[in-house]
Simulated scan of single mutants.
Amino acid sequence: MLRKDSGSISVKSKWTKTKWLLSDHVLRRFVPETKLFTRSSLNEMTDRYKMVYFKPTNGTGGSGIARILRTSPRKFRVKKDARTFEVSSASALFDQLQKIAGGRSYLLQKGIYLQACRGLPFDLRMTMQKTGGGNWVPSVMFVKLGKPNKVVTNYHQGGKLALVEQTLQRSGYTSTQIDHYKRQLKMLGIQTARRFDRHSVRFKELGLDVALDRNGRLWILEVNTRPNFNALKSLADKSLYRTIVRYGKMYGRTK
């Protein structure tokens, strides 16, 4: 579960990291309900929520994720990658998801209806990095804009990166609201870093994927302990990439 890299460690298990977040009295209200995939948890989650995400416990880059939509009391539509199929019972849904899982561990997470910018759904990334002195710094934040028909917003799944202020302005938020969200993102990043430090001081970087829902509420979708840096090169503004590289040098991630 822990992977040593340049003196730092990485935790792949989304379930482990979710439990850490839920153990924090500040963070737990920002975490969508998440359960390990079983027949009973599937019935419970699809009864409670119209949209549920089906995620591999150890997946990366948005791969292997499916979206479940309850279209009527007994019917469900599942979308994974380019494939969409419908089933007419909870039992049939479980059987189909078991095939997708292929024996691997999966999670079920309450679906969050993402805010959109000019028709493109987006979520926010808050990156935390450690200085040479071992102090956490909220280094960069940016937006991941998804394709309209994609299940996830990830860059490796066809998404694009954008700047936070620009995106929120285009989505109709005021400067005061944008400043509020930026402060909240930094608070979530710092609180998450402190919580992860309780499990190991060898974490050097964290990437929080944070959803902004259509009601204006923030949700921590997951935390990456080895976030992707290279996608930032795609931005016309190279300052974010230079910042993340500068901090990365302090703990050996970048040269």
Rank of each mutant, 00 (worst) to 15 (best):
F229D: 12
I190N: 14
M51R: 14
T174F: 02
R242F: 12
G61S: 06
G158R: 01
E33P: 01
L22T: 13
S175R: 15
G132H: 08
R198C: 08
T127Q: 15
I190Q: 13
G207R: 05
T176D: 12
L185I: 13
L93T: 07
H180T: 09
F142C: 04
R48A: 08
V31P: 14
K55L: 11
R48Q: 14
L232M: 06
A116N: 11
T243I: 07
K204I: 00
P121T: 12
T127H: 11
K99P: 00
L206G: 13
P148Y: 07
A231F: 00
F30I: 08
G252Q: 15
G61W: 00
T57A: 07
Y53A: 03
L114V: 08
K79D: 03
S234D: 07
W20N: 09
F30C: 05
F54Q: 08
V52A: 02
G111P: 04
E86F: 01
G216H: 06
G61P: 02
S239H: 10
M51T: 12
K50P: 06
R29A: 08
P121H: 10
T192V: 15
R183I: 08
V210E: 01
S175H: 09
T18C: 14
V87K: 14
T174A: 03
R104K: 15
M45E: 09
L163W: 02
S200Y: 05
P121W: 10
M141Y: 09
S6K: 15
L163C: 05
K50T: 15
Y251T: 03
V164G: 03
Y106V: 00
L27S: 14
I65C: 02
G59P: 04
F229W: 08
I9K: 01
L188Q: 08
S8C: 15
T167S: 07
R29P: 00
K17I: 03
M51E: 12
K75I: 03
T174C: 01
W20H: 12
R67W: 02
G119Q: 10
V78F: 04
M51K: 14
V201T: 14
N154T: 01
T225D: 03
S105C: 11
V151C: 00
D95P: 00
P227N: 12
L97S: 06
T167R: 02
R194I: 06
L120C: 04
A66Y: 01
G119F: 06
T16H: 06
D213T: 13
M187R: 14
C117Y: 11
G146N: 05
E165L: 03
L232G: 01
N149I: 03
F94S: 13
E44D: 11
L97I: 14
K204V: 01
L93D: 09
L124Y: 01
T71H: 11
S40L: 07
L2G: 13
M141N: 11
T16Y: 13
Y113T: 13
D179N: 06
I190F: 10
Q129G: 05
T38S: 15
S63D: 01
R246C: 03
L206F: 08
S171M: 12
